[in-house]
Design a protein around this nucleic acid. Structure first.
Lengths: 157, 157
DNA sequence: GCCAATTAATTGACATGTAAAATGACGCGC
DNA sequence: GCGCGTCATTTTACATGTCAATTAATTGGC
């Protein structure tokens, strides 16, 4: 039996039991490598992936957002948002403001400094996205998206 | 312009800038959802993904392994291994043994209890792998692996 | 209007992941 | 046979992610 690449990469002794397993592990492994790369890029600017995501969401929204609104657009769970915003606030990339109508709500707003940081990152981030799938042709990139979206349908049932 | 699925899922206001970006975000998002599912399965057995991976590696190897050997087969960085093994040892799923020839080396060995836990998980894990790509046909599953492996070539240069 | 259920956010307890530095052992070269 | 660089592992310091429980504020039903 021919040895797959992932098998070799991880020095696995035994071949994968099924093509499904191989695909899933390939997916996780690739995602991990990509996240790692982005992590390195962001750390050069003293932020993390999650922090970048929060800033990006705020810029996309174009106006202050409540914490839960931000959490809703991220993959993660609510409690993590608090500390994330704490650290962004400490770096003066966002500010918190209590809502007057509903004092339970905290609005988070991106600062000019935050916008400046995002602007600096726009080009490198886009370039990295492109590089990460640079070995694939345009049709292959679209095919990859298609397959991933189709696979993800199991989660929406 | 037609709205993509990922865009809708995350309530994004703006479409993706490029197909490359869309593919990368699709990849990360899908990986995250899958990891989440596995996390839930493992937590029912009181272990985590990483802990499961360590046990799996030890069983694959078939004999005690040094810590660095384990770290080498995982995606992660060395320092994390220590705590991971600490917790597995506390649950009596592995034992540590100092090498007599080279006292710098710590061998980690899976216990019968660890093997038993793995055996219990084999079927559910395989089933979950299959389920995660259950929306894809067999050829699509293989195509997905192929695309991911090809994309990952940028990392080996 | 008043109390219970709900909602927004935060906190606390853990498990991980990353980087950088420290510890303890080995082993080669002179 | 000693010292210095290297190696395996651990420690420390931080940022995250998960869950469960708490606080504060609102709202709906009666």
């Amino acid at each position: 039996m021919a040895e797959g690449r992932l098998q070799r990469e991880l020095n696995r002794r035994n071949p994968f039991e099924t093509p499904e397993q191989e695909a899933v592990l390939n997916l996780l492994r690739t995602g991990d490598l990509i996240l790692n790369r982005f992590g390195r890029l962001f750390s050069e600017h003293n932020i993390t992936d999650s922090q970048y995501n929060v800033l990006k969401i705020l810029r996309d929204e174009g106006q202050p957002m409540p914490s839960l609104g931000i959490a809703g657009r991220m993959v993660q769970v609510v409690p993590a948002i608090t500390g994330l915003i704490d650290r962004l606030e400490a770096k003066e990339l966002v500010v918190r403001r209590r809502c007057v109508q509903d004092r339970r709500v905290v609005y988070v707003e991106i600062t000019p400094l935050g916008m400046k940081l995002l602007a600096e990152l726009d080009q490198p981030v886009l370039a990295l996205h492109t590089q990460m799938v640079g070995k694939l042709s345009q049709p292959e990139v679209k095919q990859l998206s298609r397959l991933l979206e189709k696979a993800r349908e199991v989660f929406s049932q």
